[in-house]
Structure formats: structure tokens, C-alpha cells
Simulated scan of single mutants.
Amino acid sequence: MGKFINPFTDYGFKKIFGQEVSKELLIEFLNDLLEGERVITDLTFLNNEQLPIYPEERIAIYDIFCTTDTGEKIIVEMQNRSQVYFKERALYYLSHAIVRQGVKGESWKFDIKAVYGVFFINFLLDENHKLRTDVILTDRETGKLFSDKLRQIFIALPLFNKTETECETDFERWIFVLNNMETLNRMPFKAQKAVFEKLEEIVDVHSLSEEDRVRYENSVNAYRDYLATIDYAAKKGSEEGFEEGFEKGIEKGIEKGIEKGIEKGIEKGIEKGIEKGIEKGRREEKFETARNLKSLGMTSEQIMQVTGLSLTEIESL
């Protein structure tokens, strides 16, 4: 086990950003993220499980949910796996936080506070391959800001490849530390920013109590199980897809000509076959991950959030 905790685990992420004793870290990170826009001087953690307004509504569960000293709501999440409707899910969460600001009575006139969503993602958001994607509401023609009440920031961690010495801003220093924390032997950047000394204290594995160490190890095991399941599903899906695609590619290629047809057919068939195989493998991986998380005591709602499976599918396992 490394010197510092793994921030990609559920326990590790909330240990860093989601507890009162480390509130200073979240404030510092958000200020570095929003540098030049605004300054947060204090925040309050809210219940991260937001009950539905109506019984038939889907429950919303966030990693971290807080409000600033001036009333803005901020949702912070670490997402390790891609989902088909991930963008829509992020929008749903922010919309939910906006709607719940409504106050009964005629005196309230839609005076809502801004809602921010900060999403650390351990995958690529889309084909644009951007480290940071900022989403705001603007006029399509003029580009002028239409409303500042909704803001989404996606940080694609795999796209950050700077070394320690190449980091120039405090935001880059944060991303470097989060990306490399579990493998670091020392906490860098303490000379540039005092908050990294506080971070070092929080994330030192040896400073954990026996109870917290057990919780952390369980969280690490769940994370490793997830990675192993992903690798297995991708490998199995690729192998099955390769065989199926290879056969179809040859058949189609021969029809168009021995030399040119085989070359082109194999290429296209393999590509489609691998895609089909991976898709099948991912479906199997979802159920395997759900079983692992269920064995660790996670609720059906939490498993539904992680895997994207329906409540019926999860409860049938």
C-alpha cells in the first residue's frame, strides 16, 4: 500500500474533499478552479442524498454537495467510468439542485442561486479531447452569457500529462497531485502553496485510524475489482468480436475481390466485431460490478448510480 491514499476510490475522494476537517482543501481547490471569476471564503456541506420531491421521482445522490457563504450550490463528483447518458445525468443533478430551491408561497419569485457542477472524470468526455470543458448558458448567435445560474465543469484526468516541474498554475498542481497521489513518496508543491501541507496530513495512510484503514482498504478493493472487471470484459469482448469480425470480413471481402476484398473486408469486419464484442462485455461487466458492490453493502440506489443498471436489474442479482 502506498504512502498516500488513492483519490479515485470513494473513501479517498471524500476523505480529501468531503469532510469538515478538510473543508479548507475543497475551498482552495474551487478557488483555484474558478480563479479570476470569484472567491469562496466559506462553505457548508449539505446532505449528499437529496430525497425526491414526489415519491415517483428518482433519488439524486452526489459525492459532495455543498453551499457557499453566498448561497451558491456546488456538486463535486469523481466518476471513474463512462456512461451512455453521463452528460444528461450531470445536467439532471444540477437541475435537481435548482428545482429544490423553490419556496412555497406567493412571496418567492424564482430568486434562485447559481448551481455549479464539478465532475472529475477518469475517461474522455468526447472526441474533442480537452482536459477541461466548461459549459455555460449563452446566446447561440452572439455568444453572450444568457444566465449565470448553471455551470458545469468537466475535468478529464487522463488527458493531463504534465510532469511536476511542468506545472505552472495551482489548478495544474492540484490535477498533478490527484493523478499521481497513490504513487508519490512525498507531497510536492508545499513551497508554492501551503494547502498542500494540509493535504499531506489528510491523505497519509499511516495517519488513518484502524477503523478508517479498514474502510479505505475495502474501498480500494472495490475500485480494483472494478478495474479488473473492466479489463476482463474488454479483453473477452475483443477476443469474441475479433473472431466474429474476422469471419464476416473475409466473406464480404472475397465477394469484392481476392486481394482488395480480403484486406478491406477484414479491416471493417474486425472493427465492427470488436465494437460488438466490447459492447457485450461491458453489459456483462455491469452485472459483475453490481454483484461486487452489493457484496460490499452498497445500496441499490448507489449501485444504480455507479453501473447505470435499473433498480429491477440490481435487485434481481
Rank of each mutant, 00 (worst) to 15 (best):
residue 255 E to G: 08
residue 248 K to N: 01
residue 251 E to H: 10
residue 212 D to S: 02
residue 217 E to P: 07
residue 236 K to G: 13
residue 224 R to I: 10
residue 217 E to I: 15
residue 257 G to M: 05
residue 244 E to P: 00
residue 240 E to D: 13
residue 260 K to Y: 02
residue 217 E to V: 14
residue 235 K to H: 12
residue 247 E to K: 14
residue 253 G to K: 00
residue 248 K to R: 01
residue 245 G to K: 01
residue 253 G to D: 10
residue 202 I to N: 03
residue 254 I to C: 12
residue 219 S to N: 03
residue 234 A to M: 10
residue 217 E to W: 13
residue 233 A to D: 04
residue 211 E to T: 15
residue 202 I to V: 15
residue 225 D to R: 03
residue 262 I to N: 04
residue 231 D to T: 12
residue 207 S to V: 15
residue 245 G to P: 02
residue 229 T to M: 10
residue 249 G to A: 00
residue 241 G to Y: 05
residue 225 D to L: 05
residue 262 I to M: 09
residue 205 V to Q: 13
residue 254 I to Q: 03
residue 234 A to T: 14
residue 253 G to R: 09
residue 205 V to I: 15
residue 257 G to E: 11
residue 235 K to W: 07
residue 228 A to I: 05
residue 258 I to Y: 00
residue 261 G to C: 03
residue 262 I to C: 07
residue 233 A to W: 08
residue 250 I to R: 02
residue 231 D to R: 09
residue 205 V to L: 15
residue 222 A to E: 15
residue 248 K to P: 00
residue 226 Y to F: 14
residue 232 Y to G: 01
residue 213 R to H: 15
residue 250 I to M: 06
residue 241 G to C: 09
residue 260 K to A: 03
residue 252 K to R: 05
residue 251 E to M: 00
residue 225 D to K: 02
residue 230 I to K: 14
residue 262 I to P: 04
residue 214 V to P: 02
residue 233 A to M: 08
residue 235 K to L: 11
residue 205 V to K: 15
residue 224 R to H: 11
residue 262 I to H: 04
residue 225 D to Y: 09
residue 227 L to H: 08
